[in-house]
Amino acid sequence: MIEQIITSGKHNIGIDPVLSIWPWEVPADLFLAGLVSGLLIISTFLTLIGKRHDYPIAVKKAPIFAPFLLLIALFFLFLDLSHKMYFWQLYTNIRWTSPMSWGAWTYLFLTPLTFIWAAIHLKTAYPNWKWPYEWMENTIEYLKQYRTGLAWAILGLSLTLSMYTGILLSAFNARPIWNSAILGPLFLTSGLTSATAFILLNCPKGSNEKKLFCTVSLISLGVQTFLIIHLIMGYLSSDLAQVKAADLFLGGEFTTSFWIMIVALGTLIPAYLHVLYLKKIKVPVIIPSILILTGGFFLRYILVEAGQISHW
């Protein structure tokens, strides 16, 4: 047994007695970035396979929210910075070894493209929409001819952003809970699940699109469950630091929140409600959608909190 006590006094704020340096802002940013990526991946993918007219909510309406959600995500990231007025330093260099640098540059390129993507779909989603100036109308019409190129660029950047939300954490070897290669795919899947929930909230009653996205959401929740099981299995089959870290979810202080908020309410119950809906049993789709979105946020929140507590 080893007992270690700091005898000289060490109470650095946010560091001692346990690390708590990233409160809600970072998880909120990761959640919104995942949601926006999911919306854009679905919208651009359906466009590229020539199905953009078949799924108007997913392709044309939902992405209109994307730039605004992305700006909120960026604002949360800005709120988290403790040396805010120096944020521009992010764009003075590219650091290949820093996931945060990758994320910052991805945000920079993706944000204007999401505005363009939303703008070219605005009039089809809302036929009564009128641009205040003619030059705006002309510009949007001009950009429509580059729809395919835009879709490829946005698809690539959205996949990068979504994976970045997981890799940002998994790159930290110092925190055993985060140091798992599963986090990237898990956050990508969770982002897609959240996006399907968001699309379902906007779908009209009984539409084919609603049925399709119920099925997509169900598959996505299945993959998510598979990845969560592998995450835990990965911890338990790794070194002692990760085995100990897994205890946080298996009897430790995050057990209740992890299994109830993420696994039960955020994954299994909405999956069950989707099955009921697909079997034509009346279930208001708002319930699984809200559960998935809440679960998506808590997935990031709990993993960020638990990761900070876990150590070598």
């Binding site: 946010g14 560091i15 690390l19 340096i21 990233w22 988290d80 910075l81 403790s82 040396h83 805010k84 120096y86 944020f87 330093q89 992010l90 003075t92 820093s98 945060m100 790159a171 930290f172 070897n173 110092a174 925190r175 990761g307 900070q308 150590h311 070598w312």
Partner: peptide, 13 residues
């Protein structure tokens, strides 16, 4: 040059 993102703090074992 530090923006206070705190990534370095979380990366330090």
């Amino acid at each position: 040059e530090c923006i206070g993102c705190k990534a370095c703090i979380t990366s330090c074992p």
